[in-house]
Amino acid sequence: MNILLCGATGFVGRALMRAVQAEGHHVLPGVSHARGLPDEVVVDYTRDHASAVWLPRLASVDAVINAVGVLRDTPRRPIQSIHALAPIALFDACAEAGVQRVVQISALGVTQGTSDYAGTKLAADRHLEQLARQGRLQPTIVRPSVVFGQGGSSTALFLNLARLPVRLLPRPVIEARIQPVAVGELAEAVAHLLRSGAASLPAWVEAVGPQPVTMAEFVTSLRRQAGRSAGWQWPLPDWVTELSASVGDRIPASPWCHTSLAMLATDNVAPPGPFAALLGREATSYDRLLASPAAAAV
């Protein structure tokens, strides 16, 4: 198939491109700036809010993967545009053009989250579900827990924390549970979705590892996987957590900010069986991720 992959140069997008190409599909990389990639399609998620803009890009497309995402709202990359307005226009264009196969990379916990990140992702998800109920599309919404792999901003944050023998961690990091999933296995599962017959496509998939772990335990596990001692960790005073998040708000490249703090307030876990069935095996456990080829750089 010819597959338009929006967000092709991002952390998850690069893994998706490799996995989909390995299945023999032809990828049209959707990028925000010309990168010189073969057959790339330049898209502007900050402005492309009408289906008419997307229709010419779908002329030879059989399926679409939307893997565009940002952590926070900025003037240069408004989160409402990138997570909701542009994807909704893209999905409407797919329905108009007869492109039935759509895979939306969302996030686990968006139905319970209160952050702008969760709300905007959920708006696009619900619009896609509405198009499916109308019989106009056959989509799958993929909702991963924390995605682990070299090149990911959250992965870098975890690895930097794991290098510290003594750690003062925000209370939500100590208490919140996640089910980290290797970026390569997330991409492999999406490739399997494109291989499946239309009748067997799930409406949504929760992409999770085999067992939940608190973020603090995950950091300790990463230390042990690297051959280090467990070290020590204590909770930060809440006022320090708030202050550090406020500082992060002012640093656009920082993965730590009030948005990420709000996202930590809800457990990010789900039953692992459906994702394992899609992969055809159990996903890599959190305590083996550091050495896993599925979490390597792509």
Score class of each variant (00 low, 15 high):
G7P: 14
G7W: 08
T9C: 06
V12Q: 10
G13A: 10
R14F: 05
R14H: 00
A15I: 07
Q21P: 01
Q21G: 06
P29G: 05
V31L: 06
R35K: 15
R35E: 12
G36T: 06
G36E: 11
P38D: 07
P38F: 08
D39T: 10
D44V: 08
A50D: 15
V53Q: 15
W54G: 08
S60M: 05
D62C: 11
I65D: 02
D73Y: 04
P75K: 07
P75N: 04
P75Q: 02
R76P: 00
R77G: 01
R77N: 09
I79K: 04
I79A: 08
Q80L: 04
I82T: 03
A84F: 00
A84P: 00
A86D: 08
A89Y: 03
L90C: 05
G98P: 07
Q100N: 01
R101H: 14
V103P: 10
A107P: 03
G109D: 08
V110L: 02
T111D: 15
S115D: 02
D116G: 12
T120E: 03
T120Y: 05
D125G: 00
D125E: 15
L128E: 04
Q130G: 11
L131W: 04
R136Y: 06
L137T: 06
Q138T: 11
Q138C: 00
P139Q: 04
V142M: 07
V142Y: 03
P144Y: 07
V146Y: 06
G149C: 08
G152L: 06
G152D: 09
G152K: 03
S154T: 14
T155R: 03
A156F: 01
L157Q: 13
R163Y: 06
R163S: 15
L169V: 03
P170A: 11
P172I: 08
P172F: 08
I174C: 08
Q179G: 06
Q179H: 07
P180H: 09
E188A: 14
A189H: 09
V190E: 02
H192S: 05
L193Y: 10
L201G: 12
P202M: 11
W204I: 00
V205K: 04
V208L: 07
Q211G: 13
T214S: 15
E217M: 03
W232H: 10
Q233E: 15
P235R: 13
L236T: 09
P237S: 05
V240Q: 00
L243P: 01
S244W: 11
G248H: 09
P255M: 04
M263L: 15
A265V: 03
A265G: 13
A265S: 15
V269S: 13
V269T: 15
F275Y: 13
R281Y: 00
E282Y: 00
S285F: 00
A291G: 10
A294S: 12
A297Y: 09
V298Q: 05
